[in-house]
């Protein structure tokens, strides 16, 4: 009674017809009489009408549900676009308001002598806290995982392919700070002194935002001096070793004009508004 055994033996899979035929052969005239002959075809017709209806309905159902799914998807895409536009508008407004604040603060501080001192201190603090955008020449260090189909890579030796980890990025960034970089950004994200570089699963997060390969670390500063100070440092030696052993991609190049945005919103830790000003 096994389906596969029956199939392999080439037997009839539905023995019902054979049995009915055998029954008819035993009693040639009893059930096959005129009455049955007359009704013959009715059941067949009914069943086949039903089958046809089923097929047609299923086809119509599939065709009907297609536009519904497409419509739902396009609605989601519209919503994403709308939200993205909204976020962009808010970001533009934030930039405008920040510039406005900056201008008013500069105007207020420009009035007195004491203001000048405060202003230069403020500018230094803002640069150190990555609160203001920075531009200038700098050094760009590129890190990437080893190529997937590298025949000499670690995969050929039976290991995982060379991946860049958060540790490597941390070492690189710390090395660049130590080499005298004025400001550092990873893939266009500005780093502050307290920005976290960590990994979650397979992705590397900077300031809790995921990065995509390749990783480009931009350091602001005089390229020649930065390169001199960085070459041969512990970070450089470590990355060279990784490049050699695991075939990760590692390269530095000078960039004449790099632009780094301000880091995310600055939280005031110690400053509090003066009470008598009512602000």
């Amino acid at each position: 009674m096994s389906l596969l055994a029956d199939l392999l033996a080439g037997k009839l899979l539905d023995p019902g017809y054979a049995e009915a035929a055998a029954r008819r052969a035993r009693r040639p005239d009893a059930p096959g009489g005129p009455l049955r002959r007359g009704r013959r075809g009715g059941g067949v017709l009914l069943v086949l009408v039903l089958t046809g209806t089923l097929i047609a309905v299923a086809g119509a159902e599939v065709r009907r549900s297609e536009p519904v799914a497409a419509e739902r998807r396009s609605r989601l895409i519209d919503e994403i676009d709308a939200r993205t536009a909204e976020t962009d508008a808010l970001r533009r407004r934030l930039d405008r308001l920040r510039a406005e604040t900056e201008r008013q603060r500069a105007a207020a501080l420009a009035r007195g002598d004491a203001g000048h001192g405060v202003r230069s201190r403020l500018a230094r603090a803002a640069a150190a806290a990555a609160a203001a955008p920075a531009t200038g020449e700098g050094l760009v260090v590129t890190l990437d995982d080893s190529p997937r189909d590298d025949p000499d890579g670690l995969a050929a030796r039976g290991g995982a392919r060379g991946r860049v980890y958060d540790r490597d990025l941390q070492v690189l960034v710390n090395g660049l700070w130590a080499a005298g970089a004025e400001a550092i950004g990873v893939n266009g994200q500005r780093l502050t002194a307290t920005t976290a570089i960590r990994s979650a699963g397979e992705a590397i997060l900077v300031d809790y935002r995921p990065l995509t390969r390749p990783y480009e670390v931009t350091a602001l500063g005089d390229p020649g001096r930065l390169r001199d100070a960085f070459t041969g440092s512990a970070a450089d030696r470590r990355l060279r070793a990784l490049e050699e052993r695991y075939r990760i991609r590692y390269g530095t190049r000078g960039a004449p004009d790099v632009r780094l945005p301000a880091a995310g919103p600055v939280r005031l830790r110690y400053a509090v508004p003066r009470e008598e000003d009512g602000q």
């Binding site: 075809g41 017709l45 069943v47 086949l48 009408v49 046809g52 047609a56 309905v57 119509a60 159902e61």
Partner: peptide, 28 residues
């Protein structure tokens, strides 16, 4: 008669386009 039945069924299904209730859809 079988072919005619099948054609009638398809025509019926396409013409009437009955709404299949949700609970019946996995069985179709």
């Amino acid at each position: 008669i079988a072919l005619i039945g099948l054609l009638i069924g398809v025509a019926l299904g396409l013409l009437l386009q009955p709404d299949v209730p949700l609970w019946l859809q996995p069985y179709l």
